[in-house]
Write a protein that binds this DNA or RNA. Structure first.
Lengths: 152, 152
DNA sequence: GCACCTTTGTTGTAGCTGCAATCAATCGGG
DNA sequence: CCCGATTGATTGCAGCTACAACAAAGGTGC
């Protein structure tokens, strides 16, 4: 491989949306997990908890769509939070469906975690600058939602 | 919890940079993996391959920093690619260090994957629009690099 | 009612990820 | 030269992620 080609590859490697998004997600997760640790929750757990609290009672399918997460992953992640008594699952309107809802303990954990989450948000805002922070928040959401479009 | 509070929570859940970045990373990874599948590589594998090809010979530590990936994760991911004869590891200048480099098979796989990667990039660009696509690419890179700053 | 398809959720398998602990090699100060 | 701190890499453990295959329930057309 010629050195010019090598240079091109080096540069273009960081033009990869996927690679950069995965990198950024790893970094941001580490940052938020650090802030959330005292609250006993991880960023991934908080996401699911937040989704359930907002929409409850909510089906596995709905969580899957809301968080752009594979349905089998939802099953496992919810099971994990159930084991810690943060969530509970009951029968849905449909016998196929399950209704996930939050427990008292789960609500308390959520409320306890919120200030830590806010601190993490502030830290990220400070590191990026307010405009870029907002742009990334909305851009990432748009990207997550664009999945169905691009996949079609 | 009052319904007004609930509404607030529903809205602010998607203000979470971490949650949104993780969502987006999942979606984008699925998209790229779909495009890359015919080439026999995943997006995660291509990232490592790209890094090694650009910088080789490169230490585990250097890959870890370049890709904002935990060093132990690098060890495993590289081992995985070695098992498929895409990468090879040798002794580094320092007896502690290891030098990772690409094999002929690895280079061929990389070259074969590039058109598929480009197609994925085009699909993402089309879904987001050119300006937003570019903004996300550079924003994600900045976010990944901002890690050390924010963690300090 | 039955055959067929869709929807919803779970399980098997496999890979990605990070933290803590560990080991080996190196470096720096005495 | 030796001791302690640092650096580079690995391993054990645990959790996140997705795809494929499956099972169960519901819906549709005949």
């Amino acid at each position: 491989m010629h050195s010019s080609t090598l240079e091109t590859n080096r540069r273009r490697g960081f033009d990869c949306l996927c690679g950069n998004m995965r990198m950024a997600a790893r970094s941001v997760t580490t940052l938020y997990d650090g802030y959330l640790a005292p609250a006993g929750l991880t960023a991934a757990e908080l996401s699911v908890l937040w989704c359930v609290i907002s929409v409850q009672p909510v089906s596995m399918q709905r969580i899957s769509e809301t968080l752009a997460m594979e349905k089998s992953t939802v099953t496992r992640n919810v099971a994990h939070l159930c084991a810690r008594n943060l969530l509970k699952v009951g029968a849905g309107t449909d016998a196929r469906m399950k209704h996930v809802s939050v427990t008292r303990i789960g609500q308390e954990a959520f409320v306890r975690a919120l200030p830590h989450w806010k601190a993490a948000q502030r830290a990220a805002t400070k590191a990026l600058g307010e405009p870029r922070f907002k742009a990334m928040v909305t851009g990432a959401l748009r990207l997550a939602r664009a999945r169905k479009v691009a996949a079609a």
